[in-house]
Design a protein around this nucleic acid. Structure first.
Lengths: 151, 151
DNA sequence: CTTGTATTGAAAATGATTTTCAATTACAAT
DNA sequence: ATTGTAATTGAAAATCATTTTCAATACAAG
């Protein structure tokens, strides 16, 4: 699906959920659909103002919250304690994140269901979520600044 | 190693690092050594005041930071975005956390080194950290309140 | 085009964490 | 034991992220 079609789909889903389609929301949706980086609220705010200069930070928070409710984006947590938002991948994916620029790649990891079941029965916990995430530095961020390609 | 000996060892390590051993620090160290729950700063503050009533929240933050620097405790992140501190386990362990009370269990998961190497060479990332964590509800927190045992 | 209501952005409020600072205290050197 | 000094303390203020409040605005249904 092309980015343009995905943007329309997200806006339709917003409308189906009883929300209005407004310029600020459109700007934020375009951003989140178009990027392959995990973005924090301030980044969305800064990038969004390029599209829609009047955009307010409060609207960013509210829109991200709504997109998360709809399952279109999800929070990812980083080692430093910050969290950012990321377009939800199809199916449950394991994540590889660049801690410098936020670039995200997904990878097909091991199937954790058997391990989850074993740990649950060993411990008596009811397990309802897991994280398998790798963190590192992406190829671009590993390069010296002089040779950096545009993102 | 008994908890008492571990407390002494932590205090010795603090001193070796050029820090002074004070009553507030002793209270916080005893807490972190003695619990099997991941505790947030406010929890440490509240529990610590039982031991040392004058304890200030600022001191809690500073002491936890120092213990983390020394590698004696580590931050764990939770799905809701909060983070708590946990006595560092021997070797790298995978964690199972109760999202209700913070109880932590470690489990021997799959060895992720081969997968890490594969993902690194597939993507060109330099991978330097990973999380494999399960979240759920521990046996005690699953029980109705009337039958709760003391922790 | 009019109208009702969801949405907006600014400002204020909140909550977590950090910084500043004067008073205190551990502890090394007498 | 006493003392000097630098590390440490807790309170208050500052900072930063996030949420709430609210009056003005703008979407979309009729």
């Amino acid at each position: 699906m092309t980015p343009t079609i995905t943007v329309s789909r997200w806006l339709d889903l917003l409308q189906s959920a009883g929300c209005r389609v407004t310029a600020p929301r459109r700007a934020i949706v375009e951003l989140m659909v178009g990027t392959s980086r995990a973005l924090g609220p301030i980044e969305v705010f800064d990038l969004g103002r390029a599209e829609h200069p009047g955009l307010g930070l409060v609207t960013v928070y509210r829109t991200l919250e709504k997109l998360e409710e709809l399952g279109l984006i999800e929070r990812v947590h980083l080692p430093d304690g910050c969290h950012r938002y990321l377009r939800t991948a199809d199916g449950h994916q394991h994540l590889l994140l660049c801690t410098t620029c936020g670039l995200v790649q997904t990878f097909a990891g091991d199937d954790l269901d058997p391990l989850t079941g074993k740990v649950a029965s060993d411990t008596g916990f009811a397990i309802n979520e897991h994280w398998l995430q790798f963190f590192g530095t992406c190829p671009d961020c590993r390069k010296p600044i002089s040779t950096l390609s545009e993102s």
